[in-house]
């Protein structure tokens, strides 16, 4: 056995839990930071912050999923 002990009775649950929550995490990240960027764009009359916010939100959401389920 490796350093990570297998627990067969909860393996399936943990794994599907992680996989099924990935899309909602990514959408939530894009909504939060893309929304902030969109508001900044409207406020400053620019068009750069919305794409930046989307990419930032996706990366942060991916990090959140990875930290929560990936270890």
């Amino acid at each position: 056995m490796s350093q990570q002990e297998r627990r067969p009775e909860t393996d399936g649950r943990d794994f599907s839990d992680a996989m099924w929550s990935v899309p909602s995490y990514l959408l939530a990240g894009m909504a939060v930071y893309g929304g902030l960027g969109w508001l900044l764009d409207r406020w400053l009359d620019m068009s750069a912050f919305f794409p930046i916010g989307i990419v930032l939100g996706v990366s942060l959401a991916g990090y959140a999923v990875y930290r929560r389920h990936g270890r």
Binding site: S2, R6, D11, M19, V22, F50, V58, G62, Y66
Partner: peptide, 30 residues
């Protein structure tokens, strides 16, 4: 026996790929 490691990398790859699909979803709005 390498389940933990494989699972971790599978999750990482899935997140990165899914991110591309969802960026495609919002690209029209951008």
């Amino acid at each position: 026996e390498a389940y933990g490691l494989i699972r971790q990398n599978m999750l990482l790859g899935f997140v990165l790929t899914e991110a591309l699909a969802l960026i495609g979803l919002v690209a029209p709005f951008i």
